[in-house]
Design a protein around this nucleic acid. Structure first.
Length: 272
DNA sequence: AAACCTTTGAAGTGC
DNA sequence: GCACTTCAAAGGTTT
């Protein structure tokens, strides 16, 4: 049950209280994304991403990576999720592997014109692994159906991760290890609280990293829009969620985070 | 099997 | 310009 995990997670939350006082949370950075200012031509300049965060063990440049069969590079498996992640860097130092593992251009995967190699990147995911239609029914399909099918088969270019998503990727394992929880919904609640507990400077690092990720994403996929992925997830009816309107900001599922994040009312005082 | 849950932030839509 | 919606990740849970 979600309640159970949320309640157990609450104990952990108590160790990471948000800054006292409403409105004391670090405010999101001003929009860093300036579409008009982004270059839309030429070879993407990748170096800033690798230079931004210093590391005692510098990550090889992408060109080097593409040639080496290094330990970090999974050549056989298409599932790169483990590599598409911030490494186990501490809060004070962002991992240096973020960008070249994160970014599609560096994975030389499909969807990157000019790259003959075919190492897929998590941001470029194949359509659902459903079986292809057999030849016999091809003649029965209309042109519109064929077109729609073709469209559905296109690999999906995922949205670049925002600052909080990058933070979650880095910290998830740590939180899981601390609280033994695995359920993402509960973990994410904890991460949300910790995110608010970060100083402005600490958050700024993730905002900057996210900005660079967006910038590189735009350079690689000039015509890409978040809209391209709209409607790819089927959703069940959300009507049941909308009745509990508290006036707060509603999330994607029609629920209200402020309400959901409230501590369990019947927690034993001993754990508080 | 696929959506849901849960978080924040970016970006899209509609008025 | 504002309010609302969708999707990014993740993995256990629910439908």
């Amino acid at each position: 049950m979600y309640k159970d995990t949320v309640y157990s997670a609450f104990n952990l939350l108590m160790h990471y209280p948000p800054p006292s006082g409403a409105g004391q949370h670090p405010q999101p950075q001003p929009p860093l994304h300036n579409k008009a200012s982004q270059p839309t031509h030429g070879v993407p300049q990748l170096s800033p991403l690798y230079e931004h965060f210093s590391s005692p063990h510098p990550t090889p440049a992408p060109a080097d990576i593409s040639q080496k069969q290094g330990v970090h590079r999974p050549l056989q498996t298409p599932d790169l999720s483990g590599f598409y992640s911030l490494t186990s860097g501490s809060m004070g130092q962002l991992p240096h592997t973020v960008s070249w593992f994160t970014h599609p251009s560096l994975m030389l995967g499909s969807g990157v014109p000019g790259h003959p190699a075919a190492i897929p990147h998590p941001a470029i995911v194949p359509p659902s692994g459903k079986q292809e239609l057999q030849p016999y029914d091809r003649t029965l399909k209309t042109q519109a159906e064929s077109k729609a099918e073709k469209e559905a088969k296109k690999p999906t270019i995922k949205k670049p991760l925002n600052a909080f998503m990058l933070y979650m990727k880095e910290m998830r394992a740590k939180v899981i290890a601390e609280c033994t929880l695995k359920e993402s919904a509960a973990i994410n609640q904890i991460l949300g609280r910790r995110w608010h507990a970060l100083s402005r400077e600490e958050q700024a690092k993730y905002y900057e990293l996210a900005r660079k990720e967006r910038q590189l994403h735009m350079q690689l996929y000039p015509g890409w829009s978040a809209r391209d992925n709209y409607g790819k997830k089927k959703r069940r009816s959300r009507e049941k969620h909308q009745e509990s309107n508290t006036g707060g900001k509603r999330n994607a599922f029609g629920t209200y985070p402020e309400k959901a994040a409230a501590p369990a009312p019947f927690l034993p005082m001993t754990v508080l």
